[in-house]
Write a protein that binds this DNA or RNA. Structure first.
Lengths: 247, 247
DNA sequence: GCAGAATATTGCGTGCACGCAAGATTGCGT
DNA sequence: ACGCAATCTTGCGTGCACGCAATATTCTGC
C-alpha cells in the first residue's frame, strides 16, 4: 500500500527523524528552554533554515517523537474494531488505546513536557493530528454519513482528547508546594475515556442515522435532524497549522 | 452588575480599543500584509512593546473587533433560551445566533479575512473563545452535569464551529479562476447549524442524564447510553476543577 | 548516461514575540 | 496630602519563523 520509498523520501524521513531525535535528546539533557534551534539543526547535520522546513516551531520537534503516527494508528484502530460494535465504542476504544499505549517514550519525556508551559501547549495541540484520519475512518466505517458530520465528530473527539490532556497535565501542576515542577498522576486512559463518553450518543446517532433505519444496535438514537440539508460541502484539505492563541 | 470602571480599567479598554481599531483600519486600507505592528502601535499612541501586551500576534488585533464579546453573548443566549427546550436546541440556537448576527462589521472586513491565510487561521481559532463561557452556561442550565462533561461538550461545540468556519471560508477559496481572491458565499448560519446538529444527541443525552430520568423536552432523543455507567465516567478524579482560563 | 524538470537545502534579510528590568502611573490606606 | 504598593508602559536584547532567491540534489523521459 505504501508505495516505493524513493531516495528523496528516505532522506526526508531520515533528516526529520534526526531532527526529532536530536531535539528530544538535547531537551532532556539541558532542559527545553536551554536548547536553541541552531543547536538542534547542527546536531542533525542540517542548516537552521532547514529545521523550519520540517517543524514550524521549536517545540514541535521535541514533541514530535511522542506523537509520531497518531493519525495512522487511530484510523487503523477504528477500522480494526469489530463491525458489530457501535461507532461510539470503536472510536472511544481507538482513542483510548492511543493514549494508553506508551510508545517508546523515554521515561522523562512526558514529565519534561508537563513542566514546560510551551511544550504542554504544543503537546495538547497535537491532538488535532487525528482529525483528518479519524474523519476518514468514520466515513469508511459507516458509509452514507455526511462528510461534514464526520469531520465534526472527528473534531469533537479531538477536542475532547484535548480537554482530557489539559486536565491531566493540570491535575498535578496545581500542587501547592513546589510550583513549576509537575508530576502527572492518575490514569490518562481513564481520563480520556471519561472525556469521550459524552460524545458516544452523537457518534452512535450519526452512525445509525447514516446506516439506514435497520442499524447495528437495537437502540437507535432518534435523530430528527436532517443532516443533508446543507448548501455547500466541498472536499477538504488538512491545511496549515500555526501559532498558538491564548485561551 | 459590572462594578465601577476604575481609571486603570478604562485606560486599558481605551488602548485596547485604539489598537484594535487602528489595526483594522490600517489593514483595510493597505492590505493585511502591508501593516507592521510598529505602525499599529504608533497609530494607537503606544509603544510597539505595549502592543504585544495586549495582543500576542499581529493578526489578533485585526480580528479582535469581529469577535469581541463572543463568550459573553453565547452564555447569555444559552441562558436566555426557554427552559422547556432541550439543551441541544438552546446551544445550537445560541451559537447559530452568534454567527448569524453580523455585528458592526465593516463590510470588507470578512472579505479581507477570507483572503488572508494568516487571518483566516486566526479567525477560525477564535471560535475557542466561547469554550469557557459555554461550559459555564451548560452547567448553569442543567445542574448535576459533570464539569468534565460540560467542558467536553463546550469544546466539541467550539470545534464544530471551527469546522463550519473553515468550510465556509474555503468554499469560495476554491474558485477555479482568480485564485487568491476569495468571496465567501452561502449562508454561514445554516452551515454552522448543520455542523452543530450532529452534536445534539450528545448534548441532550448529557442533559437528561444529569437532570434525572424525567427529561425536559417531550421529544427527548432516546439514548440508552448511560453516561454514568462507565468506569470512571462521572466524578472520577478528585481534581476536576472547572474554572479560569488557562495561561 | 544525459538533459531538463522537479524538488530540497541553504543563506540572507525582515518582522515579530517575549523575557527582563527600569521608569511612569494609578490605587489605597492613613 | 503623602507615601507605599500594585500595576502598566517602555526600551532593549534575543531567538525565532518565514519569504525569497540562489544552489545543490533527485527524478523522469529519452
Amino acid at each position: 500500500m505504501t508505495g516505493e520509498p524513493s531516495l528523496r523520501e528516505r532522506k526526508k524521513r531520515a533528516t526529520r527523524e534526526a531532527l526529532r531525535a536530536a531535539a528530544l535528546r538535547l531537551a532532556l539533557e539541558r532542559g527545553p528552554e536551554n536548547v536553541r534551534v541552531e543547536e538542534i539543526a547542527e546536531a542533525a547535520g542540517v542548516s537552521p533554515r532547514t529545521y523550519n522546513n520540517y517543524f514550524s516551531s521549536r517545540e514541535q520537534a521535541i514533541v514530535a517523537g511522542i506523537v509520531e503516527d497518531r493519525a495512522a494508528r487511530v484510523a487503523a484502530a477504528v477500522a480494526a474494531h469489530p463491525a458489530e460494535g457501535s461507532l461510539g465504542e470503536a472510536v472511544v476504544d481507538a482513542v483510548v488505546a492511543l493514549y494508553g499505549d506508551p510508545g517508546d517514550h523515554p521515561r522523562g519525556a512526558l514529565l519534561m513536557i508537563a513542566n514546560s508551559s510551551a511544550l504542554r501547549a504544543c503537546y495538547v495541540e497535537t491532538a488535532t493530528t487525528i482529525e483528518g484520519a479519524l474523519a476518514g475512518a468514520i466515513v469508511e466505517r459507516c458509509r452514507g454519513v455526511d462528510r461534514l458530520t464526520a469531520r465534526v465528530l472527528a473534531a469533537s473527539v479531538a477536542a475532547a482528547a484535548k480537554v482530557a490532556l489539559r486536565q491531566w497535565l493540570r491535575a498535578a501542576s496545581e500542587v501547592p508546594s513546589m510550583p513549576g515542577f509537575v508530576v502527572p498522576s492518575g490514569s490518562l486512559p481513564e481520563l480520556v475515556r471519561a472525556a469521550l463518553v459524552p460524545l458516544v450518543p452523537a457518534l452512535d446517532a450519526a452512525a445509525t442515522g447514516a446506516h439506514d433505519a435497520a442499524a447495528t444496535g437495537a437502540h437507535a438514537a432518534t435523530n430528527r435532524h436532517d443532516t443533508t440539508s446543507v448548501p455547500g460541502a466541498a472536499g477538504t484539505r488538512p491545511g496549515t497549522r500555526a501559532g498558538a492563541t491564548e485561551p
